[in-house]
Amino acid sequence: MKLRTVGITGIGAHVPEQILSNADLEQRHHVSDQWIRRRTGVVERRICTREQATSDLAVPAARQALAAAGLRPEEVQFIITATMTPDHLWPSAGSTIQGRLGAVNAGACDLNAACSGFVYALAVGTQLVRSGLYDNVLVIGADVISKFVDWTDPKTYLFGDGAGAVVLQPIADREEGLIDFMLGSDGSRGDILQLPAGGSRRPSSHETLDQGLHRPVMDGYDTFEFAATAVMDSIEKVLARTSYSIEDVDLIVPHQANQRLFRPVAKWLGISVDKFFVNIERYGNTVAASVPIGLYEAVHRKRLKKGDLVVLTAFGAGLTWAGAVLRWTYSPNDGHEILHP
């Protein structure tokens, strides 16, 4: 059986309208804009309203990706949603989104690899098309982390809400498309990034609420050390699986975890920091949505054009990390607006 070449043929992104700026945080908490910028690079982030949930962001992003690929919802055969903040613990966000899109012929599920989730889902979705099982797969990265963090904890000023989606389809072999992936995990260190309660280990109760166990645990030193090491590892390992080297790469679209990560990694890789696409200043760290939002903006801001060699790198709770190498195959038609000019 011949394996098919797979490409991204449509992309969409959506963030909430509501902006939470550093100036807003300055007013509410004892923290300065300068402090947040220096430690994270974030200037503002988008935050859902009390009523909004993950599927509310994912559905418009998915519709946009489908329109860009010229697909009707009923033509979609599978939907994978990378998220760690689904609307409900169950059913999956994937099924919720499938229902709301009217993708009546699609299977749907979630994939939770935290901030690495989109790249993991891209790897899985690619294989479904590569194998010939499906022709039209929708891969979504969407998270509403704002509902799970404690806004009085300065470590959470990093975060924001958002969604991004891509359509995967078979393409001509010469276009290369999604070339290779690396997926990593180290569950033995899972405790450095964790939401302690609300799962089957410690279900929600008055006690878990009183003990503050529904707020993320994040050790700053360990997390930064892991992130820097994971970016290096994912980029080096995924390139080693291909015939390309770092010099061939036109753009790296990383998970937007913290602006401060990119300078040291660029130094260690021996490349210019400008090779990293960065938009954390406007959206913060949007968990599984950050890579597809980054891709969307890179394309629409003309940092990424058809034929460019792109590396994706992501890392997060699990611990998990992931890398992808792809030849970019999509150029937007007129009429697709950039997210927020």
């Binding site: 050390e225 820097a228 913290n258 300078r263 040291p264």
Partner: peptide, 9 residues
């Protein structure tokens, strides 16, 4: 704190 992690790495 981030400078210190970077320096150690």
């Amino acid at each position: 704190s981030i400078d210190i992690v970077e320096l150690m790495l």
